[in-house]
Nucleic acid binder design. Structure first.
Lengths: 156, 156
DNA sequence: CCACCTGAGTTGGAAAGTCGAACCCACCCG
DNA sequence: CGGGTGGGTTCGACTTTCCAACTCAGGTGG
């Protein structure tokens, strides 16, 4: 009865099912930057128009984006992030920081984000409870679903 | 001469070119959990074996994973995250938190992460300079490449 | 010795998704 | 009227994915 496809139940997988397709997160990037029009998206992302159209439909269905007219007659539309969409920005920030660090010679970063405190944003993931920056060795995973244990950190 | 494909230069796009393909981030998830063997990956991710094999090659090439033998005779291998791979964990954490919040009825989370401080990990992206949690309206993007401006936050 | 198992993949062919260019439609501009 | 713009849709060629079956090497049990 068990289907031969029952991967680990996981919110990462669920999230990626919505935003993990090619271009989806780049759409979100542009929309968060305020570039929400179809032709802007095509140009700035470099995606085929048809793919972009299907991605936009999906993201709107998932309530990550909304489509609103910024002009009737002629009808013209613009996509914007919802609350849920904006809450994906941390994913973009951490990805960007990783890319800056590992894929570029540091100081040819194509974009710098300024924080309202006046400094350049260097995003750090911290623990809400203790406020400390989080690193791998501080984490212990506790699966909640029977049958889906983890091996735990492999001894060095 | 300008190719008809010049999307915005962007570290998010560059990072996604490496880890944005289907299953890649799930591979990283499993490997960070300590489940680094081929058949574990197949089972826990639910990916076709051939696709998984090409993803693993790619991630090893990108120095996000390493492949090491955990047994000669019989030869058996295990994939592990590199430093660079571990630095992608924040991406997984923020994705997981988003998925928990938006895709589930809060309290059927399939996995809980414990921080070494003793509390459940709730990851928060903060600004390294001022320490404050980051939210969208605190951010200003400064493109460094001529010709790639942004619209800026659209007035409500 | 032989059959069978496990781990770690590779192979082949059908099905699905992507790409790019061309097309469409409504509307505005001169 | 002719041309331009914004926001898509359609088409066919091409590329990936998927899944089952196969391989290969080295144990394991009888």
């Amino acid at each position: 009865m068990a289907a031969p496809k029952d991967p680990r139940p996981c919110s990462i997988a669920d999230a990626l099912a919505l935003v993990g397709e090619k271009y989806s997160l780049l759409v979100l990037r542009e929309v968060c930057l305020g570039n929400g029009r179809f032709d802007q998206l095509v140009r700035n992302i470099g995606a085929p128009r048809d793919i972009l159209a299907t991605r936009l439909r999906r993201l709107v269905d998932a309530r990550i984006l909304t489509k609103r007219a910024y002009s009737e007659r002629p009808q013209r539309f613009e996509y914007r992030p919802t609350e849920a969409g904006l809450e994906l920005e941390p994913v973009l920030m951490t990805l960007m920081t990783w890319g800056d660090r590992h894929l570029r010679g540091d100081e040819d970063r194509p974009m710098v984000i300024e924080h309202s405190c006046g400094n350049e944003l260097v995003p750090v993931v911290t623990c809400r409870a203790c406020g400390d920056p989080v690193s791998h060795e501080d984490l212990t995973a506790h699966p909640q679903v029977p049958g889906w244990s983890v091996a735990g950190p492999t001894a060095a």
